[in-house]
Simulated assay, not measured.
Amino acid sequence: MKKTIIIVIITGMFAWAVYDVINSSKDTANSGDYVAREDTTEEDTNEDSSNEDSEGNNKVGLEVGNIAPDFELTTLNGDTVKLSDYRGQRVMVNFWATWCPPCRAEMPDMEKFHQNKDITILAINLTETESTKSDVTEFVEKFELTFPVLMDETVKVANQYQIQPIPSSFMIDSNGRIQYKALGAMNYELMVQEFEKMK
């Protein structure tokens, strides 16, 4: 009887050791840096890693220094906009909703920033979270916003950018690289300060 118990215990310990080794190798394989592109192929990944050594950090991702993930959305006016169309310009990408008090507080500063500086603002509305699309139209009219308001109707881009709090903003330089990200509202002074650091 004792031999049977010892054999069962040893077998269980061996099985656990094998399971642990297999799981730890999977975790190691999956613990690489996050690349926020749904359409990344193996070829793209290899190209990114080989370029990293020769040309600096050309990784597409969400960290400061990464190339901002590209996206395509439709504006409130029905125009199609891609982030990559603005390469060569400094861009502020802002995620917001009409029901969000910090977003409402930030909008006048964003409009002032847009008017006073050579910056492109792409204000991405989390449309799926709105009661109606007309709420967005009324909001834009009330705040007299002149920059493009993009409609993220399925929050695909918000998910791509891993948005948690709103508003969230990404300051992207003329090379398409993230230079600053704000999780929460920004005021005009902070917008200008981060804008002036970008090329």
Rank of each mutant, 00 (worst) to 15 (best):
S50E: 09
S50K: 13
N51E: 13
N51R: 08
E52Y: 15
E52W: 15
D53N: 15
D53E: 15
D53I: 15
S54G: 01
G56P: 03
G56R: 11
G56A: 13
N57Y: 05
N57T: 09
N58S: 04
K59Q: 08
V60T: 06
V60W: 01
V60E: 11
V60Q: 10
G61A: 03
G61S: 00
L62W: 12
E63F: 09
E63L: 15
V64E: 15
V64C: 14
V64D: 15
V64H: 15
N66I: 03
N66L: 01
N66Y: 11
I67V: 07
I67F: 08
I67L: 14
A68I: 14
A68S: 08
P69C: 11
P69F: 12
D70Q: 09
E72C: 03
L73A: 13
T74D: 02
T74Y: 03
T75A: 02
T75W: 06
T75V: 03
T75C: 10
T75R: 08
L76D: 07
N77F: 01
N77T: 10
G78H: 10
G78Y: 11
G78N: 06
D79I: 06
D79S: 10
D79T: 06
T80P: 01
T80A: 04
V81W: 02
V81P: 00
L83P: 08
L83Q: 07
L83V: 09
S84N: 10
S84D: 14
S84M: 03
Y86T: 10
Y86N: 13
Y86R: 09
R87C: 10
R87H: 00
R87A: 02
R87E: 10
R87L: 11
G88S: 05
G88Q: 06
G88F: 05
Q89C: 03
R90A: 05
R90Y: 03
R90N: 11
M92Y: 14
M92T: 06
M92H: 08
M92I: 12
V93A: 00
N94S: 04
F95N: 02
T98L: 14
T98A: 10
T98D: 07
C100H: 15
P102K: 05
C103S: 12
C103L: 07
R104Q: 06
A105L: 08
E106N: 05
E106H: 09
P108M: 03
D109K: 04
D109S: 14
D109L: 06
E111P: 00
E111N: 02
K112V: 06
K112L: 15
F113P: 08
F113V: 04
H114S: 12
Q115C: 04
Q115F: 11
N116H: 06
N116L: 07
N116E: 15
K117W: 00
D118F: 09
I119T: 12
T120S: 05
T120E: 14
T120Q: 10
I121G: 01
I121P: 03
A123W: 04
A123Q: 01
I124V: 09
I124Y: 01
N125C: 07
N125M: 07
L126F: 01
T127Q: 12
T127P: 13
E128T: 07
T129W: 09
E130P: 05
E130D: 10
S131D: 14
